[in-house]
Amino acid sequence: MTSFTSIAEKRESGVCVISLSGYLDAHTASDLEDVIKQAIDEGCFKIVVAFAELEYISSAGLGVFMVFIEAIRQKGGDIKLAAMTERVFSVFDLLGFPILFQIFPTINEAEEAFPTEA
């Protein structure tokens, strides 16, 4: 049984932090897609995805971020990635995803990388 959870939390800064845990694969990718879509529907375009508790990611998981990145950036937002384990980072790195996505050591660093609204 594949276990995966993604929990979204909106912070005072307006940034939505989505914390992942478990296994993100072709079976569970749609769960994350639903959570990101809901955040966007609620008007959150500044998203930090936290990977500290994620055990595994396949290309289906990487694809989820590609689904939304263009629309979010057109709204002035971004998806920033944070707190990856070496195992998960290696999959992003294999395909060159650090070219397109900023990856930060911690959630706070990713959150602070968003420009503060006037």
């Binding site: 396949s58 290309s59 590609m66 990145i69 263009e70 999959v91 294999l94 395909l95 060159g96 070219i99």
Partner: peptide
């Protein structure tokens, strides 16, 4: 081609490339 893939914001079709890389 990953630069083109990113530029076109595609989101499928990476599995075989991953297989060949690892």
């Amino acid at each position: 081609d990953m630069r083109r893939y990113f530029a076109e914001h595609r989101h499928h079709g990476l599995g075989i490339l991953l297989m060949t890389r690892v």
